[in-house]
C-alpha cells in the first residue's frame, strides 16, 4: 500500500535529558509517497531511518493491539500505527502523552500509569474452589465484558483526562477504572463488594468529572466514563 505524493511537515517534540537543553519542536518534511505503509507510524520510521536516527518513540505490533505508540497527534491522543496519513492535515504536531514525565522525545514514563492500574487488583478473584472443568458463564454474562476486556493499556485515555492531571497519585484514572469494572462485571468474580469498597474514597473513582475525553480518544472505541458511571451505580445499589 502506498500514498500519493504529498509533502507533509511533522513538527515533533524533542527532548534529550543528556544534552541539558529544554524541550523544543523540530520540523521534519517528508514526501509521504516514499513511505511504505499508510500510517503515521510508517512515516515516523522513515524519518528516523533517513533524517534523524536520534528521534525516539515506542512501537511494537504496528496494528493497534499492543498499545505502545500512544502519542498526542494534533492535539488529540491516538496510536501512530492506526492513524492514517491520509486523514491528517499537511502539518502534523506530535507531542508525548501529557500527564506523564517525559523520558525522551515522544517516550513518557509509564510507571505511574501501571501503578494506578495495579491498585484496582486487576485480576479475577473467586473464593470458591475451582471445578474440574471451566466455570460456566452464559453468553449474556460474557457479553457484559465486551467493551471492557479489549483495553490495550495504551494510556491515551488517562493521559487525556484533566482529573488525572490534577491528581495523578490519587485518582485511578479512566484506564484503571475500566479495568476495575471489567472484574466487577465478570460473573465469575466474587469480590465485587471489596472492589467497590476500595474505590469509595473521594479520589479513586470520584474525581471523574465526566469530561468524557477518555471515551472521545480511546483508539479501541471503548468508553471508560461509562464504566466509571456503572461503578458508582453499583456503589449506590450496595448501600441501598
Amino acid at each position: 500500500m502506498s500514498n500519493q505524493s504529498r509533502v507533509m511537515t511533522f513538527s515533533i517534540c524533542r527532548f534529550d535529558p543528556e544534552n541539558g537543553k529544554p524541550r523544543f519542536m523540530q520540523n521534519f518534511e517528508l514526501d509521504i509517497a516514499k513511505v511504505k505503509g499508510t500510517m503515521l507510524l510508517s512515516a515516523l520510521e522513515l524519518i528516523k531511518e533517513t533524517q534523524d536516527p536520534t528521534l525516539s518513540f515506542r512501537r511494537s505490533c504496528g496494528e493497534g493491539v499492543c498499545g505502545s505508540d500512544g502519542m498526542n497527534i494534533n492535539g488529540r491522543n491516538g496510536l501512530a500505527c492506526i492513524t492514517k496519513l491520509h486523514d491528517l492535515p499537511e502539518r502534523v504536531i506530535l507531542q508525548p502523552l501529557s500527564g506523564f514525565p517525559i523520558i525522551r522525545d515522544l517516550i513518557v514514563d509509564m510507571t505511574p500509569f501501571f501503578t494506578q492500574y495495579e491498585k484496582v487488583k486487576p485480576y479475577l478473584q473467586n473464593n470458591t474452589p475451582p471445578p474440574a472443568t471451566e466455570r460456566l458463564q452464559s453468553p449474556e454474562e460474557r457479553a457484559k465484558l465486551d467493551g471492557l476486556y479489549e483495553c490495550i493499556l495504551c494510556a491515551c485515555c488517562t493521559s487525556a483526562c484533566p482529573s488525572y492531571w490534577w491528581n495523578p497519585d490519587k485518582f485511578i484514572g479512566p484506564a484503571g477504572l475500566l479495568g476495575a469494572y471489567r472484574f466487577i462485571a465478570d460473573s465469575r468474580d466474587t469480590e465485587t463488594p471489596a472492589r467497590l469498597e476500595a474505590l469509595k474514597d473521594p479520589y479513586s473513582a470520584f474525581r471523574c468529572r465526566t469530561i468524557m475525553n477518555c471515551a472521545d480518544v480511546c483508539p479501541k472505541g471503548l468508553n471508560p466514563a461509562e464504566a466509571i458511571a456503572k461503578i458508582r451505580r453499583e456503589m449506590l445499589h450496595q448501600t441501598e
Binding site: 485480576y123 479475577l124 473467586n126 475451582p130 474440574a132 472443568t133 471451566e134 466455570r135 460456566l136 458463564q137 452464559s138 453468553p139 454474562e141 460474557r142 465484558l145 476486556y149 472484574f183 465478570d186 465469575r188 468474580d189
Partner: peptide, 17 residues
C-alpha cells in the same frame, strides 16, 4: 481450563461452556 479459572474471558456456548 486453568486459563479459564485465571479469568481469561473466553467466548461462550449457550450452555455456558
Amino acid at each position: 481450563i486453568e486459563l479459564e479459572h485465571m479469568g481469561l474471558p473466553f467466548s461462550r456456548l449457550d450452555n455456558g461452556k
